[in-house]
Structures are given as C-alpha cells and as structure tokens.
Measured scan of single mutants.
Amino acid sequence: GTLHLNGVTVKVPSLEKAIKAAKKFAKKYNLEVQVHGNTVHVH
C-alpha cells in the first residue's frame, strides 16, 4: 500500500499496516484518514 501523510508519500508493505499507521498519526495530529483503493491519505 501507499501512505500519504500531509504530502509525504510512504510505501508500506501491507495496506493494514498503512491504515494502522495512518490512524495513529491522524489521532495524534487530529487529522482525517481516507482510504482510496490501496492508498491511504492523511490530511
């Protein structure tokens, strides 16, 4: 999967790991997580 954090793109081995990391990051910075196919966006 691919993880987008505020314009930074990170390749992640699995989508589940990407979503987990995204949710952790989003919670910390009070951001929103959106999943588009195998790409996770945090903004």
Rank of each mutant, 00 (worst) to 15 (best):
G1W: 14
G1Q: 07
G1P: 11
T2W: 15
L3M: 08
L3S: 02
L3Q: 02
L3G: 02
L3V: 11
H4E: 07
H4P: 02
H4Y: 09
L5G: 04
L5N: 02
L5T: 05
N6D: 06
G7N: 09
G7Y: 06
V8R: 13
V8P: 02
V8G: 05
V8M: 12
V8H: 13
V8S: 06
T9N: 08
T9G: 04
V10K: 05
K11V: 11
K11C: 14
V12H: 07
V12T: 06
V12W: 13
P13M: 08
L15H: 01
E16V: 12
E16C: 11
E16A: 14
E16S: 12
K17M: 13
K17V: 12
A18K: 01
A18C: 13
A18Q: 01
A18P: 00
A18Y: 07
I19D: 00
I19T: 01
I19K: 01
K20Y: 04
K20H: 06
K20A: 14
A21P: 00
A21G: 03
A22C: 13
A22Y: 03
K23E: 10
K23R: 12
F25L: 14
A26P: 00
A26K: 04
K27T: 07
K28F: 08
Y29D: 02
N30F: 11
N30A: 08
N30H: 12
L31M: 12
L31G: 04
E32D: 09
E32A: 09
E32Y: 08
E32W: 08
V33C: 10
Q34C: 15
V35F: 05
V35L: 07
H36A: 09
H36M: 13
G37R: 04
G37N: 06
G37E: 06
N38D: 07
N38G: 06
N38H: 08
T39S: 12
T39D: 07
T39P: 02
T39I: 12
V40M: 03
V40S: 01
H41N: 10
H41L: 14
V42G: 01
V42Q: 01
V42Y: 06
V42W: 04
V42A: 05
H43F: 14
H43R: 11
H43I: 14
H43C: 13
